[in-house]
Design a protein around this nucleic acid. Structure first.
Lengths: 251, 251
DNA sequence: GAGTCTTTGTGATCTGCGTCACAAACTGCT
DNA sequence: AGCAGTTTGTGACGCAGATCACAAAGACTC
C-alpha cells in the first residue's frame, strides 16, 4: 500500500484561507435528506453547542489525504468534492457532496486517516465538530448512531454508483451523458428541456469525475452542443434535449 | 437511473442450489476483524437465536441486484464477490468479501434495493438474519449500531480503494500487480518469496476486478511469468519476486 | 485596458488495449 | 479413457482516446 502525498498544512478546521467564522446557521439540518434533519430539538441544540462554523472560498481543502481524522465537517451550504490522488499527480473525483452532507464521517468512525481529500467547489459554509465531541455525542444517543449508519450506507451506495459510472459505460460520450444526468438527478433538478446545471466545474474537473482526459471532455461537450443536445451558458449547462441525452447515456 | 437486470429467483436465504442447512458455527465471530468479534456473550447468543445457517457451493448468488433487502448475510467461511452488471452484460467486481464480513448490510440499513449482486467464489457457510430481526437487534443495542457504523466505514474505504485501483493506475500491468499485492495484504499473506495466493478466480474474473479484458489479463500474467515475477501452480499464484512486483505496481 | 493566467477548442499523431479468431490445455462427468 | 465444456494462450487488426501542441477566448489584477 503506497503512502500518499499532499498532507495539508492545516491543523484545525481553519487553514491558510481567508475564512470567516460564523456562529449561526444550521439551516442545513432542515434539509430533507440531511443526516441531521428531523433530529429532536434537544439533540440539535446539543450538537449546536459542539460545532464551530466556518466559511470557505471555492477551492479550499477541508482535509487532505493522509491526515489523521480531526473531526467531521458538516456542509451547511455549498459543494465539495472528494478526490483521490496518485503519486504522479493524477486524480479522480469520488463524489461531490451537497449541502446537508457530512464529510470525514467514516474516518472518524473507523479512526483511520482520511484516504481522500475534500475540496470545496463553491463558497461553502461548514460546521466542524471535533472527533472526540462527535464520538461522545454518537455514543450517547442510539438515534444518532443509526443515522450515522444510514449516512454511511448512502455514501457507500454513491461510491458504488461512481464505480459503475466509470467502468460500465461503453463509450466516453455515454459516461459524460450519465454524469450529467446523475448530476441533475442528485440536485433535485428535473431533467426537462431548459434545465440549468450549475456544475461549478471546469472541463478538467469533469474529466476527473468520469476518468477521461480533459480534451476528450471538451470534444464530447462540443459534440453534444453541435447536436443541440445541450447548450453552455456562462459556465452553466442547459439541457435542450433530455431524451437524446438519455439515449446517449444508454449507449 | 436505468433499471438493472438479473433479478434472482430466490426468495430467502436458500435458492435453487444444493444447500445444506447447518446449525452450529459462529466461529467467524471469533475472527479479529469481524464485525461481531468480541461482542459480549449475551449479544452473541441473542444474535445466534436469530440467524439461520446455510452452506452454498461456489458460484451461488446470495442476492442479486435490484432485489429488495431480505436481510443480512454473515459470511462464516468462504469468499464472496460483490459485482455490478451493466445492461449489456459486462460486469465489474466491486470487492471480495472474506469470512467474518457481513453482506447486504448497507441495503438493510438504508432500506434500499441491493444495487450489487453477491456471488460466492468458494464453497461458503453463510448465516442469514432477516431484515426485521436485524433492525430490532440493532436498535436495541447501541454497541451493535456502532459496530455497524464501523463495518460500513470499512466497506466505504474499500470501495474507494477499488476506484483508486481501477482509475489511478498508469498501465494495465500496474493494475494487475496492485491487485495481486492488495489481495495478498488483505489475506494476511506476507508478501514474501513463495507466498501462495489462492485467488479462486479465473482470468475472466480477475479482469472484472481490474476493469480490463480477459485477454489482457492472460497476456499480463504471461508476461509476469516470463519475467519470473510469479509462477502459477494449480490455480494458485506463487510470488517469486515481491520487490519486482512492487516495482510493477508503481509504474 | 493592458497584461497575465486559466480555461477551452481543435488538429495531428501514436499506441495500448479491446475485439476477433482459433488452438491448446485443463476439468469434470459417465 | 473419452467426450463436452470451460479456461487459457497468442497472433492479427483496428480504433478510441491519450498525448502533444498551439491558438483563441475568458477571467482576474492593477
Amino acid at each position: 500500500m503506497p503512502l500518499r502525498v499532499r498532507i495539508s498544512p492545516m491543523s484545525g478546521p481553519s487553514g491558510p484561507y481567508n475564512i470567516r467564522v460564523i456562529d449561526s446557521c444550521f439551516s442545513c439540518v432542515m434539509k430533507e435528506e440531511g443526516l441531521l434533519c428531523e433530529l429532536p430539538q434537544s439533540l440539535l441544540s446539543e450538537l449546536n453547542s459542539l460545532r464551530q462554523s466556518v466559511f470557505y472560498p471555492r477551492g479550499a481543502f477541508l482535509f487532505a489525504e493522509g491526515e489523521s481524522p480531526r473531526g467531521v465537517f458538516i456542509l451547511c451550504s455549498g459543494q465539495a468534492k472528494l478526490i483521490a490522488t496518485s503519486m504522479d499527480g493524477q486524480s479522480v473525483t469520488l463524489r461531490v457532496a451537497e449541502q446537508g452532507e457530512i464529510l470525514g464521517l467514516s474516518n472518524v468512525i473507523a479512526n483511520s486517516p482520511y484516504l481522500v481529500s475534500a475540496e470545496t467547489l463553491a463558497p461553502s459554509q461548514v460546521s466542524f465538530v471535533s472527533r472526540l465531541h462527535f464520538l461522545q455525542f454518537l455514543r450517547a444517543h442510539t438515534e444518532v448512531a443509526l443515522r450515522v449508519a444510514r449516512h454511511l450506507s448512502m455514501e457507500l451506495h454513491k461510491a458504488w454508483e461512481q464505480t459503475r459510472l466509470i467502468t460500465l459505460a461503453p463509450t466516453t460520450q455515454a459516461r459524460l451523458a450519465r454524469f450529467l444526468l446523475s448530476w441533475a438527478a442528485e440536485h433535485g433538478q428535473e431533467v426537462l428541456v431548459g434545465a440549468h446545471l450549475a456544475l461549478n466545474m471546469t472541463h478538467e474537473e469533469i474529466a476527473e469525475n468520469i476518468g477521461v482526459s480533459r480534451e476528450t471532455v471538451s470534444r464530447a461537450l462540443a459534440d453534444f452542443r453541435q447536436k443541440e443536445v445541450i447548450r453552455v451558458n456562462r459556465g452553466k449547462i442547459v439541457i435542450l434535449q433530455p431524451d437524446r441525452l438519455h439515449g446517449l447515456a444508454a449507449s
